[in-house]
Design a protein around this nucleic acid. Structure first.
Length: 417
RNA sequence: CGGGACGUAGUAUAGUGGUAGUACACCUGCUUUGGGAGCAGGAUGUCCGAGUUCGAUUCUCGGCGUCCCGACCA
């Protein structure tokens, strides 16, 4: 993409109403725009990074047998009354609205009910199970206090997967696979080293649920973590019983703040009982389906990467989620050769399937470099009179600052290796 | 939802009961061209409503909005 066509502008200063580093950087670099408290737009750069996170999650969900669907946001009141999750006393995050035709609807803040109800039409035999269905879908939550930039918002996309299994053993097998898939997601987006599978409260159908907590001072949660054993315990369930279950002692754990980037939960028959989702086993006996749910918010993941992998100059994206792989910087020159050379390099990189943001704007070098560092694309390639004379482009890695000089073929070889 | 802070231009900030200032961004021109460059000129603003007052951006009340702490977060 040509940067002259990118309608977003960078800013030197963060808006004063954003304190969270993730929002400050993402707004300054033109990735997101704030509509109101807890409601953000994704701008072109932000959408590209968001989509990369989404695709990584999608690939990992597909690998473990996930099948993607997309359910509606508008929810029937009657369905949620069956699980006792319609009233504002029980669920305080509902956005609700009256239908002009009569009746009332809610805007989905999660999707256990509709997914479970849907499966009643498609699951009737043990032969139909297991089912692992997921979606990337917008959730609406009427939070009393949105905060921390993209960390807690009122509208956000969530990948929510629901597992439908015949029995506990089958459920547990998938639950563990999903857990592994989650860790792979966080590794791929660059958070693997600081993200811990964390024991958290389980609810009525299992002793524990698991959160994936990324250690960060920007986090809302407190966890007790063993970096050596690569496990953590949420403060809310930190007690002797948990310590005994996990075989760890208090001495090996340190308390740290963390961002919850994912959560997996065994639901047992809570929803299948309430909504009547059952199947016939081999003997013709009716049995309730065992369920689990598995959530990740891609925008929160994006914000967490921004929060952790940035420096005083701006964002530093890992290649896996960067909006582009190469930021091609053309230093304006009176000679048309520089522009022509940049255009040629842009063409060849695109042809090689490499995503390039070409800064073809009529701006000074200093401004372009500063913008480039703020935007955080992994590799900066400079075309100028200097590089033209040298016959090689200047290549600077955003993360390390490592500089090298490469010809077109060397550069493409390096990027496609 | 409880507590606190705040609301001045696109952004960040001064300031005042009597003509609202600066920086960046923006527009025009010239200069400049490897680290947010310079000069000259220009356009743009007091969240909304009521009250006090000769006069309110400033004071008072109400509303709306934003942030922070807490509560909440299957």
């Amino acid at each position: 993409m040509r940067q002259s066509q990118l309608f977003t502008k960078t800013r030197r200063e963060a808006p004063k109403d954003e304190v969270a580093k993730n929002a400050q950087l993402l707004i300054r670099a033109g990735y997101i725009h704030k509509e109101m408290a807890g409601v953000y737009d994704l701008l072109p750069l932000g959408l590209r990074t968001f989509d990369k996170v989404v695709n990584i999650i999608r690939e990992e969900m597909n690998k473990i047998g996930g099948v993607e669907a997309h359910l509606s946001s508008i929810q029937r009141k009657e369905l949620w009354e069956q699980t006792d999750r319609w009233s504002d006393e029980n669920v305080d995050v509902w956005f609700k609205s009256a239908l002009k035709a009569g009746g009332e609807v809610g805007f989905g803040w999660t999707h256990e009910e509709p997914f479970t109800a849907l499966m009643r039409e498609h699951v009737s035999s043990y032969k139909d199970l297991p089912v692992y269905a997921y979606q990337f879908q917008t959730k609406f939550r009427n939070e009393t206090r949105a905060k921390s930039g993209l960390m807690r918002t009122r509208e956000f996309v969530m990948k929510d997967l629901y597992s439908f299994s015949k029995d506990e053993a089958e459920h547990q097998k998938f639950y563990d696979k999903a857990s592994d898939a989650y860790m792979r997601v966080f590794e791929r987006v660059g958070l693997g080293d600081v993200t811990y599978k964390t024991f958290a409260s389980g609810g009525s159908f299992s002793k524990y649920s698991h959160e994936f907590q990324t250690l960060s001072d920007a986090g809302e949660d407190m966890v007790h973590v063993s970096k050596e054993k690569k496990i953590a315990i949420n403060k809310e369930v930190f007690n002797d019983e948990v310590l005994a279950d996990l075989g760890v002692s208090k001495d090996e754990l340190v308390e740290e703040k963390a961002i919850e980037v994912g959560n997996i939960f065994s639901l047992g028959t809570r929803f299948s009982d309430a909504l009547g989702l059952s199947y016939k086993d081999e003997n013709g006996e009716s049995r309730p389906v065992i369920m689990g749910c598995y959530g990740i918010g891609p925008a929160r993941v994006m914000a967490t990467v921004a929060e952790l992998l940035s420096d005083d100059k701006g964002l530093v994206w890992p290649e896996s989620v960067a909006p582009f792989r190469v930021h091609l910087i053309e230093i304006p020159s009176e000679s048309p050769d520089v522009h022509n050379e940049a255009a040629e390099l842009y063409r060849e990189l695109n042809e090689a399937g490499i995503e390039v943001l070409w800064d073809d704007r009529d701006a000074r070098a200093g401004e372009k470099f500063a913008d480039s560092e703020l935007i955080g694309i992994p590799l900066r390639v400079v075309v100028s009179e200097k590089t033209l004379a040298a016959g090689k482009f200047e290549c600077v890695e955003r993360a390390s600052g490592h500089t090298s000089h490469k010809s077109i073929s060397e550069l493409i070889g390096h990027l496609t290796a």
